[in-house]
Design a protein around this nucleic acid. Structure first.
Lengths: 188, 188
DNA sequence: CCACTAACGCAAATTATTTGCTTTTGTGCA
DNA sequence: TGCACAAAAGCAAATAATTTGCGTTAGTGG
């Protein structure tokens, strides 16, 4: 029972996890998602199906785990200029990524697992990136929205559209940000 | 092939659908959702599993269909007083319903189906209710947010929290509404 | 009342999932 | 180094879910 949260790198367990994740990514990119099954994933990863079942439980949990890993940001948001510019650029790429076919499927995977851990992981990633931007604004002495304001009025609307409707465009993102900025900084 | 979207009431197809929906609702309320399977649903509904498979495809689609039906509002938002009061009351009950264990599961069911139809259905229900409130405000001559503003800055943040984090409280809902109201109406 | 067809039931074939037991592999300690 | 231990993987049989071909039923329209 009980897999370590951070298996020692190089250990057998870590190798299996890597192989399975890789296998899932490959399959998702080459075939229809409805045809992705645990026995197939296992075969491609050179692993027994029962290993996957015991470790992840079912396909949804596995997909959620893989999706959450893929949603983990590469590094800090790029520095463009002002904190606001950085924010706009970062949110735009965030919205693009989420609105893309692949992004939507990853979010759906993360949300449809019974275990909420991976959903929280994703939300955590987003909040962490925003905190970096907030810290930058503080350093520069720029007026800036709080984390809660950004989550509620910039991230949430984007996510809702991605999940329920259609893609949020670039202009839309900029308007959300403008609306979230503190009054004295707001433009026309 | 091809089930009518609105099967004639009283027809065989409609009876089967009703029995299956009922069976799903019963099972979700009495047993753990992980134990709900199509063969069991079929048995309780006095129907063959293959009927369900042919009609809905898989468990997720069926659950999404049932959940969307249950999320359909009973009637127009109650009239309390001003349109704003009505809005606050309606959004509060909306948030409560969504944040409850059952509500969260229904939303998750709706979102995890491959077919986005049921998700759009739900979003449509919400927008319809809001439109009623907006029309009321117009009738009363009250300043009121637009549909887009309400969806983006009241509904979306609630939904995000329900999906990714924890329950939005009553105070939180009121703050969202206060923030969404047009400036000249806003309170301290 | 008859012909037509969409939707259902049944049962066999396939595929996925679970589970008991064995074997492997990495870890800690002498 | 080498031995003992435990966690995780493999294997295969048993169970359960899904798919599918074909016959039957029940609404619908003429």
């Amino acid at each position: 029972m009980g897999y370590r949260e951070n298996p020692r790198p190089g250990g057998r367990s870590a190798r299996v996890q890597a192989a399975v994740h890789q296998s899932v990514r490959d399959m998702l990119s080459t075939m229809d998602r409805a045809d992705v099954t645990i026995p197939l994933i296992a075969q491609r990863a050179n692993v027994t199906p029962s290993t996957i079942y015991r470790r992840w439980g079912d396909l949804q949990e596995l997909l959620a785990d893989v999706a959450a890993s893929r949603l983990q940001p590469d590094g800090a948001p790029p520095k463009i200029g002002s904190a606001r510019d950085d924010l706009e650029a970062w949110v735009e790429q965030y919205a693009d990524e989420m609105a893309s076919g692949v992004g939507r499927e990853m979010i759906r995977d993360v949300l449809s697992a019974a275990d909420a851990t991976n959903a929280e992981r994703c939300s955590g990633y987003t909040q962490h990136q925003l905190c970096v931007l907030i810290a930058r604004a503080k350093e520069y002495g720029e007026a800036f929205p709080t984390l809660v304001e950004l989550m509620d009025h910039v991230i949430s609307p984007i996510m809702y559209r991605v999940l329920f409707d259609q893609a949020p465009g670039t202009d839309y993102v900029r308007e959300l940000i403008a609306r979230a900025m503190p009054r004295d900084t707001s433009r026309t």
